[in-house]
């Protein structure tokens, strides 16, 4: 088992009177896929946004590679090597794959673009992820399928020597074959030594690619377990009730405010 690359300890977050995250402990390990599951409103998105620096945390500690850090903005998160791929992907359809992958971080001198350098780097990254479905790196994103767009968005996030990648429901809008491609890609990210966090509602996906499952229930971390130690049913119970047998929160009823 590898060292944790990103660790949350006792994170609390409130929006006004609403206490969204209660004493969250969460660990991401390099080379592993950690699935983050939970029902709607359990706090998955808030947690991701707190890690990404969009929402400042109220209390608690964030450790990155063992060092305590405070992240105030997405820029700072990116500087540490933490990248988030949001559900709506944020790609510019009128630009091609290379242009999208380098958007906002173009390479070149004095404001001039070094297209050759960017194109080669983009191709290298896509090749390292064994992406085989894209005809040309100069294809505009508008003419890509949903799965290909997801691939581009993920490839964009690993272009920057990133160490942790958070994926927000990458397969939610995809067909069977495309889901297959994206899950393979998620697996490959972990094999390359990245810490991957996969948010998903789809239990099949979660059990297929994840090494660990972290389950949020009403803003609390109900359990974080190796995937091979739990069953489908147990995870569903953890999601819906916060406990399953001796797993999960002791008396979930008292957890609500």
């Amino acid at each position: 088992m590898s060292e944790p690359i990103l660790e949350l300890r006792g994170i609390n977050k409130s929006f006004g009177p609403v206490h969204v995250l209660h004493d969250i402990d969460f660990t991401v390990r390099a080379g592993e896929v950690t699935a983050l599951v939970g029902d709607n409103g359990a706090g998955k998105s808030t947690m991701v946004k707190s890690i990404a620096g969009i929402h400042p945390i109220d209390s608690g500690e964030v450790l990155f590679e063992g060092q305590p850090v405070t992240i105030h903005s997405p820029r700072e998160a990116a500087d540490y090597g933490i990248e988030v791929v949001y559900q709506d992907l944020a790609l510019c359809e009128n630009l091609d794959i290379v242009q999208n992958m380098f958007l906002g971080r173009e390479r070149g001198k004095y404001g001039l673009l070094d297209e050759a350098d960017m194109e080669q780097a983009a191709r290298k990254t896509l090749a390292s992820l064994s992406v085989r479905t894209v005809k040309s790196v100069r294809t505009p994103v508008a003419s890509l399928s949903g799965g290909q767009r997801q691939t581009v968005a993920i490839a964009k996030s690993v272009l920057w020597d990133s160490k942790v990648v958070l994926l927000d429901e990458p397969t939610a809008a995809l067909g069977v074959a495309q889901t297959r491609q994206v899950l393979d890609l998620v697996r490959r990210l972990a094999e390359q030594g990245l810490g991957v966090v996969l948010i998903s509602h789809n239990m099949n996906d979660v059990f297929e690619v994840s090494d660990r499952i972290a389950c949020l229930y009403l803003g609390r971390m109900a359990a974080q377990l190796p995937t091979k130690d739990v069953t489908h049913g147990q995870v569903v119970e953890l999601i819906t009730a916060g406990r399953s047998g001796d797993l999960g929160i002791a008396r979930p009823e008292s957890a609500t405010i």
């Binding site: 820029r75 709506d88 992907l89 944020a90 790609l91 510019c92 359809e93 009128n94 958007l103 971080r105």
Partner: peptide, 11 residues
């Protein structure tokens, strides 16, 4: 093309 994507890219 996509102002939101541009904003998130730090533009």
């Amino acid at each position: 093309g996509n102002a939101e994507a541009a904003r998130r890219a730090g533009i």
